[in-house]
Structure formats: C-alpha cells, structure tokens
Design a protein around this nucleic acid. Structure first.
Lengths: 242, 242
DNA sequence: TTCGTAAATTGATACGGTCCAATTAATGAA
DNA sequence: TTCATTAATTGGACCGTATCAATTTACGAA
C-alpha cells in the first residue's frame, strides 16, 4: 500500500505537519524536498497536490508552500466525511445498535440500463437486494441494490443480512474504494411513509449511484431512500483540480 | 485560461463526451490520444485524471478508459458538480435565463456562531444578503448569505443583485476556490412554499456551509433552500488518498 | 534612505522516456 | 473444441529536463 514513493512522502509530510515540525507554517521548497527525500520533483509535486486537495496546505507560485492555518486551528470545519463509502461504517454508533432487515433477496436478469451501468453482457443476472436499515431500532433507510452474480457468485442470504462491503473485504479480498453518487430530495411515497414511519409532509433524501471496486470494476448499483432527519452529507470541494 | 495544453484536451474531451462521440462508452487509449492531440502522454494523463476526479470517466489498467454511464443521466438544472463553487455558474442554461431577486440586504453584527465560522473578532459586522434565485422566471432557491464587511467593505446593492463571486474575481482579484458544505433535505416551511411555489408535501433541499478564498480566508457563510426538483448533487468519492 | 530594476527563488506546465502491472487477445498443444 | 501459455495492449508510477510565471530579494542610482 505505502510502497509508492509519493505516498511515502505524503504520509511523512502529513505526520510532520501534525507534529508541528514546521512552526513557521511553511514547507521547504519543492527542489529541496526532492533532494531531501531523494525522489524526483514530480513525486514531491504529486504528494503536495494531494495535501493541497485535502485542504491541508496551499501553494503560492513564486512564494512557497504553506500550511493552512485553519487546518490546525479548527479541525471541526475541515473534518472529512466521504471517507467511508459503506453505510455500515458511516454512522457514529455511540453504543447504539444498527440493524439490517432483509426485505427481499432474489436473482433477476439485468435490464438494459443495468447492463450499461455494470458493464454486463446481454442475459447476465444480478442479485436484487432490498434491505431496511435500522439505527437503534428506528428504521431510517430503504436500500435497493443490484450486484452482478458474476462478481460474487456465492452471495448468501446470511451475508446479505449483514455488511456486504465488510464481507467482500474480509472474505473475498475485494475492496470498494470509489463511488459515484447523486444526492437529491423528494416527497415520500406510501411505501416510504410506512417503512420509515414518515408523515406525508415529510420527505426522503435519495442517494443513488454506483460503487466501484478498487480496480475500477463497477460493483453495485444502489438506490437509497433515507428519512430526511437522518441524512446529512458533508463535502469539502476544491477547484484546484488534480 | 484555456491556453493550457491539458485544459484544451480536457475541455475537448468533455464536450466530445457530451456530444456522445464515444457511443461505446470507451475512450481511445492514452498513447493514441497523445498522438491525436499531438501532446505528451503526461498531458493526456493529466486531463484524464481531472475527468476521473470529477467522476466523468474511470480507468481500468490493462483494459481502457470508460465513460461513467451515470454521468449524463441526471438532467436537473441545478447540477452542483464540485467543479463550480458559485451558483451562477452551476446551471446548464440552454438559452434559458437565470435571475436574481434581492429580498433583503443589510448589515448586522455577527453572532457568536458566525464569529467562529468566519474567524471574526467580537463586535465585527457582516452583510446579510437574502436573495431569490430564478431560472427562466421560476423561483427555485432561497439564499441567505453572510459576508464580513471587513473583507469586501464596498459591497453595493447593485453588486449583490448579481453574481458576487464573479464580481470578486473580476473587480477584486479575489477567488473563491474552496467550500465546505452540508447537504440535507427537509419539509418545506410556509416561506418556502410561498416563495418557491411548493405544495406542503413537497420538500426543499438544503445546502449550507462556508466558502473560502484561495488563501484560506473564510469568506461567506451560506444557507440555501432549493426546490427539491431543481436540485441534484453529484459527488464522486474516492478512498485512495490519505 | 528611497525606490525602481535586475536577479534569484519557487511553484506550474509540459515533454518524453523507462519500467511495471493488470487485462485482453492470440497462439498452440491436447 | 478446450484450455493453458504467451504476446500484445493499456493504464500506473517515476524519473529528469526545459521553460515559464509569480513573487521575493538584492542591488544600485538618485
């Protein structure tokens, strides 16, 4: 994992920043870093650009590279969400229990849209998994997921009643590292109201999208409808692309 | 702006993707692109990596580069993509007009929370700006923003009736490049229903957060309430870096 | 000293090369 | 045909170089 050059530099710089080893809030220039770490300047640039994307440093051409004072000063503002992809890990369970109730689990032929999204051949099959997520016995989310059987031919009802991502990582050595999601809001329908215990005036938040394995394989198409009061999405957006 | 090689490639590829010039959802390999555009492979890689970061494409080593099938599926107008921070630039305005109706514009003392968020001293003042955003004469968003007068002492009613970010960039040479936002959903209140023309069962999407200048200065605290059917937030999350 | 100009510093862009790793396509033996 | 092996394809990581652009520092004349 960390056997990449730029990652080694990245992690080292990060920990040095946290250790306050740059009290003047300024990093050495790229050419010096290149020499000091004995790596090419390109690799230094790559490491620095990741730090910049995370809002930890910012660079000023002609001037130098500086540590974002806000990063150290006010951690709460800069805390990242979007660092957990799976649902199971995305909730701070302060002693509370989270549960999964399996609503439906079957195998169906992939329709055309699914074939496109999941890169399937005509006639391939997918699992259709419908689950109700509970947090401290309160249902808060209806989840409808589609997974190609080709990728995990051995999915069982038992597995599907727990965290699929954890199963994948622990048992199959497959890791989900990317997702492309769309977030929106909508009025709740009858099913939402019944399963999630909502009044007609209360909406749901909808997250839908695709999860990818770390090699880029599209793994799951998912549609989630959440109680609006349980949903909250945080992002840190930067325009310094790359 | 677009006189950069990788940006030229980036924009060209993006528009070709939008034009559906890759019906097999697959891009040419990097080496071919390098030849075709007559630029180095590094520049191709850079352009592609931006597209990948925006979730528009994804790459599979040994296999090729593919277009994210979800990317073009969502046709809501307010398409917050993480590539534009300001609202004004976030529309696809296909000849449609977008408008701003100024609801309120005043100077108030910053409350405690505001002081924290914007790093103000006790007793400092902020502009409070309430605006109604229209798209083709249809109101779709109520925007309530707070900006420290210290940063832009000369804000006028005229400026505030247009794009503040554009004004900053054009006249003040200040650029907003980062934001930390929270997205959620909520039932519409009476004001929402009146201003946005919603039924009581129809919700709003709420985006609130802080915008930062490129030197890290917190610039604006904003709260936006949007018609749910005009809102759509796309995010592409990766776990790689850290 | 003061102030404008030149030089040095420092990050940004771009090139093109080497080698590696994952995947796919081609090949050939059974 | 089938299937394992080999070759070709394709993206990933890194290197080192050249040149440019913004900023800061040093310098020298008034």
């Amino acid at each position: 994992m960390a056997d990449l050059v730029y990652r080694r530099v990245l992690h080292d710089l990060k920990s040095r920043i946290h250790d306050n080893q740059f009290p003047d809030k300024r990093l050495p220039d790229e050419r010096s870093l290149s020499e000091a770490y004995n790596v090419s300047r390109s690799s230094i640039k790559r490491a620095l650009s990741v730090l910049a994307n995370q809002g930890i440093i910012f660079k000023k051409r002609g001037s130098g590279t500086f540590i974002n004072p806000l990063y150290m000063k006010n951690q709460t503002i800069f805390h990242y969400e979007g660092s957990n992809l799976g649902i199971t890990d995305s909730f701070k369970s302060d002693g509370k229990t989270q549960g999964i109730k399996l609503l439906d689990f079957k195998v169906v032929p992939a329709n055309e849209e699914m074939q496109q999204d999941l890169f399937l051949e005509k006639g391939e099959f997918v699992y259709e998994i419908q689950r109700l997520r509970l947090f401290d016995d309160q249902p808060f989310m209806i989840e409808r997921g589609f997974i190609p059987i080709r990728i995990v031919p051995e999915l069982s009802q038992k597995v599907v009643s727990g965290s699929i991502f954890n199963y994948l990582e622990d048992e199959q050595n497959k890791v989900v590292t990317k997702s492309f999601m769309t977030v929106k809001a909508a009025p709740s329908n009858a099913e939402d109201q019944e399963l999630l215990g909502l009044k007609p005036t209360e909406p749901v938040a909808i997250m839908e999208g695709i999860f990818f394995l770390d090699d880029g394989t599209p793994f799951e198409v998912s549609n989630m409808r959440l109680r609006y009061d349980y949903f909250n999405y945080n992002t840190f957006v930067t325009l310094d692309e790359e």
